[in-house]
Amino acid sequence: SFSADMRCASVFGVVASASAVTPVQKVVQLMNGMLEKGKSEKHEEQVQFAAYKQFCDDTSVEKTRAIQEANEEIESLEAVIAKAEADISKLTKEIAQLDEDISVYEGDLKAATKVRKMEHQDYTETHKDYSESVDSVDSAIALIKRKMYNKKQGGALVQIVQSPLVSMSDKKVLEAFLTTSDVGLDVTAPEAAAYEDHTSGIIEILEKLKDKFEDKRTELEKEESNSKHAF
């Protein structure tokens, strides 16, 4: 039985020695664990680095493109600025020229206004002269036809004679009539007949002068209307 017990003890000792871990094995196990952990951490770092590298690459591409676009935008804006500066220079010169033109125009307008005022004043006076001449002719013809014309009433005919529209020949006839035109209500029939013969030519001259005065007045009115519209 002793020997049997010894054998059992030996068996248990062998088993115990077989299941026990030596310090070296412990170190090996620890190192293996560290190796696996290192590999795992290395793999994780590689994954993180790859992701970071991809991020950096993507960012670099994006930033490079952004810089290129910004440079292109800068070039475009510089071109716009250069054109704007050229336009400013051109427009500044044009404005200066326009200011000069306006100054000249204002001077011309002032002078033209002065001339137009003088023209209108001349028109008014000349139109009045023609109208008064027409009235004088009508008055003279009426008096002559009524045999009422005499030297005392010669004012109308004198005004007509002084008109520059009367020819020298007509002026002489009218002036001669002025010196010999005393006719009263108590004239005899022969005197009246002689008066009518004498005055028929005078009336004809006066009627022609009236037409001339009226034509000149109409022409003057047209010129005034054209000048007024052209101003």
Rank of each mutant, 00 (worst) to 15 (best):
A4S: 14
A4Y: 05
S10E: 09
V11I: 15
F12P: 00
G13F: 08
S19C: 10
V21D: 05
V21I: 13
T22A: 09
P23G: 05
P23I: 07
P23N: 08
V24C: 05
V24N: 11
V28Q: 14
G38T: 09
S40W: 03
K42N: 08
E44C: 07
Y52P: 01
C56F: 12
D58W: 04
D58S: 14
D58Q: 14
E62S: 12
T64F: 10
R65I: 08
I67F: 12
I67W: 04
Q68F: 08
E69L: 10
E69Q: 14
N71E: 14
N71F: 03
I74E: 08
L77I: 10
A79M: 07
V80K: 11
A82C: 06
K83H: 10
K83D: 09
K83S: 13
D87I: 05
D87V: 02
D87H: 04
D87K: 13
D101Y: 06
V104L: 10
Y105I: 09
G107S: 09
G107Y: 01
D108C: 07
A111H: 08
A112L: 10
A112M: 08
A112P: 00
V115I: 11
R116V: 03
R116F: 14
M118Y: 07
E119Y: 03
H120Y: 05
D122L: 06
Y123T: 03
E125S: 08
E125N: 08
T126G: 00
H127G: 04
H127R: 11
D135K: 11
S136I: 02
V137K: 00
L143K: 13
R146G: 14
A156V: 02
V158A: 10
Q159L: 06
V161Y: 02
Q162V: 02
M168D: 11
K172H: 07
K172Q: 12
A176M: 09
L178K: 04
L178E: 01
T180D: 15
T180H: 10
T180E: 13
D186V: 04
A192Q: 08
D197T: 13
T199Y: 01
G201M: 04
I202V: 15
I203R: 02
L206K: 01
E207H: 02
K208A: 15
K212F: 01
K212A: 04
F213A: 02
E214Q: 11
K216H: 13
R217E: 06
T218Y: 08
T218A: 15
L220Q: 03
L220R: 04
E221Q: 14
K222N: 09
E223N: 13
N226E: 15
K228Q: 10
K228S: 13
K228E: 12
F231N: 12
